[in-house]
Amino acid sequence: MTKPLKTTIGVILTAIMLFPVYWMVNVSFTKDTDMRADPPHLFPFNGTLEGYRAVLDQQLPYLGTSLLIGAGTVVLTLLLSAPAGFALAKLRPRGTGALNFVLLIAQMIPGIIMAMGFYAIYLRAGVLNTVPGLILADSTIAVPFGVLIFTAFMSGIPDELINAASIDGASKFRTFRSVILPVSRNAIVTVSLFAFLWAWSDFVFATTLDGGGDYQPITLGIYHYIGNNNQQWNAIMATAVIASIPATLLLIVAQRYVAAGVTAGAVKD
């Protein structure tokens, strides 16, 4: 396959994948009276900016909070899961099977049950309706995932690399910091990405643990448009469109970073 051909195919595949996203954008510009038009309007001709006006008036603070929560969750997740992944993949102490097992169970607990459990704990600890509390809760979605992913990726790192370091007299911690982490760039980016995305799109924790908070994430912001009897769909979709712009940019940057890391030969034997 030639490269221009690949680009063409890539663009077509992306277009198919993103069609539902286009449809969301389309609805975000549509007037109430046209939303269920039959046949549907393919383009928002004769559309409205009503949805966007509402969003720009009300949603920007929520967006900031979401970014903060996303970033906090990423940091916490990496701090906890990268060392654990290294230990499980390369040091393999006895009992790792059991730990893997616990990590799996941990991911199976329904989010709503986790949230109800946290509610009781947070209420007593006084962290209900705070941003750090929500970061902590959101990290529980990502930490078990992070440990498993780091384990899977780090077990692919050749042992000679670690042996060489320990011959040089490096401590385990130094080996981890200056040998393992640099070659685990892909795993770090992957885990960060998902930690961020989960925190970004979390709703269950947000509503249970931060429903009365002064700083709330964008998923709760959407509820401005979901009234008790009526939903304002163009504004809901407009919120999603606006909220996805900063995150999309972030993704594109992160993806370039992965690609750059690879071409620069970060993974080398």
């Binding site: 490269k3 680009t7 992306t14 996203v21 449809w23 799109s201 998923t219 999603a240 993704l251 594109i252």
Partner: peptide, 26 residues
């Protein structure tokens, strides 16, 4: 590595950025 590959790959992730209530409703 073809032209736009990194950008297109990033765009593939956009569905993940949408709150589920929005993507499922769409």
């Amino acid at each position: 590595h073809f032209k736009l590959s990194a950008t297109l790959r990033a765009l593939f992730l956009v569905p993940w950025l949408l709150p589920l209530i929005v993507s499922a409703s769409t």
